[in-house]
């Protein structure tokens, strides 16, 4: 009973984490599902978002402005990966890894801005001293201070904006780029430009997620983004497996990635309560993603033989 009670008490926290990571999952959805690119920049750009936002807030900036600057920083990271990929011909995965690696050094520098040290691996924020938009401290309070409220509004606004954008001529051409590049070019679509644009938007969202996470948890750290791509993928895949059949509309598909992130953090909270160390989580996450990616593949490979034979006959 105690166990159950403490689990329930930790659910709001899991929701908060899930919402913030949900924005990151939407970013991963854009690249992995729509552009058909596995973008590893995100491990770096998440931390960049957190670092930029934390540094600016600690320097006394307005937190909304700090959030905006974090998004812009993330977009720049996406731009670099995009140009490495399209203009320099580097495979997308490697381009992402290069940017991510470079960002590690940059993030250490960013967090030291305004400090006597040259580099800094952690930057603490305090809800008492800094005007934070969201803080985990109030996550169980029934007040407008509760971070879940603002996080939900931001998530809803982002989904609405993306829903509109991917319905425009430009947005449709980005979807086409991910679906079929030959066709896109034959229809006059600049596929290189669209890939860059997609990576820019995606990493902007990832940085927004990082910025909110830094405020929510009260610190930006150099390794806050480590394994982020895998968590993002886990959220996207969990959302798809559980809700893919029900949620067909594009906005709902984005929402399912957020719900996937929330479920992910609930499961994580549960296994932590069951006695796993938080350092075991990376192993667990990797396992979850590996299993969820394997299942559809095996289903296709071993359980659709009958169908394939019918097709061959026709």
């Amino acid at each position: 009973m105690d166990f159950l009670l403490s689990f329930v008490r930790s659910l709001p926290g899991a929701c908060g984490q899930g919402f913030a990571w949900g924005l990151m999952a939407i970013g991963v959805y854009l690249t992995y599902k729509i552009l058909d690119v596995a973008d590893l920049t995100v491990d770096g750009s998440l931390a960049t978002g957190g670092a930029v936002c934390a540094v600016l807030i600690s320097l006394g900036w307005n937190p909304w402005l700090a959030l905006l600057m974090a998004v812009i920083a993330g977009m720049l990271a996406g731009l670099v990966t995009g140009l490495l990929h399209t203009a320099c011909g580097i495979p997308a995965i490697l381009a992402g890894i290069l940017t991510q690696l470079a960002l590690y050094s940059l993030n250490l520098r960013i967090m030291a801005i305004g400090d006597s040290a040259k580099t800094k691996a952690t930057l603490a924020l305090s809800v008492d001293r800094n005007p934070l938009l969201v803080s985990s401290r109030y996550v169980r309070e029934l007040s407008t201070n509760n971070p879940l409220l603002l996080l939900a509004i931001i998530v809803a606004a982002v989904i609405a904006l993306l829903y509109w954008f991917f319905g425009t001529e430009l947005g449709c051409s980005i979807r086409a780029t991910g679906a079929n590049q030959s066709m896109s070019r034959a229809q006059g679509i600049n596929t290189d430009k669209n890939k860059v644009l997609g990576l820019v938007v995606s990493n902007g969202l990832v940085a927004l997620s990082g910025a909110l996470l830094a405020q929510y948890s009260g610190s930006a750290t150099i390794d806050m983004g480590r394994g982020a791509i895998v968590i993002g993928l886990a959220a996207v895949i969990i959302g798809e497996v559980l809700l893919g059949k029900v949620f067909r509309n594009f906005a709902l598909k984005l929402l399912s990635a957020v719900i996937g992130a929330i479920i992910y953090y609930m499961v994580i909270t549960l296994v932590l309560r069951m006695g796993l160390e938080s350092t075991d989580l990376k192993l667990l996450t990797a396992l979850v993603v590996a299993i969820f990616l394997t299942v559809p593949y095996w289903k296709e490979k071993y359980f659709t033989k009958a169908k394939k034979e019918v097709k061959a006959d026709a």
Binding site: F165, G167, T168, E169, L170, S184, Q187, G188, I189
Partner: peptide
């Protein structure tokens, strides 16, 4: 998508 071949892709629907 094909209808817009040769045209600029804008933010119109």
């Amino acid at each position: 998508l094909a209808k817009r071949r040769g045209a600029r892709r804008t933010l119109r629907v």
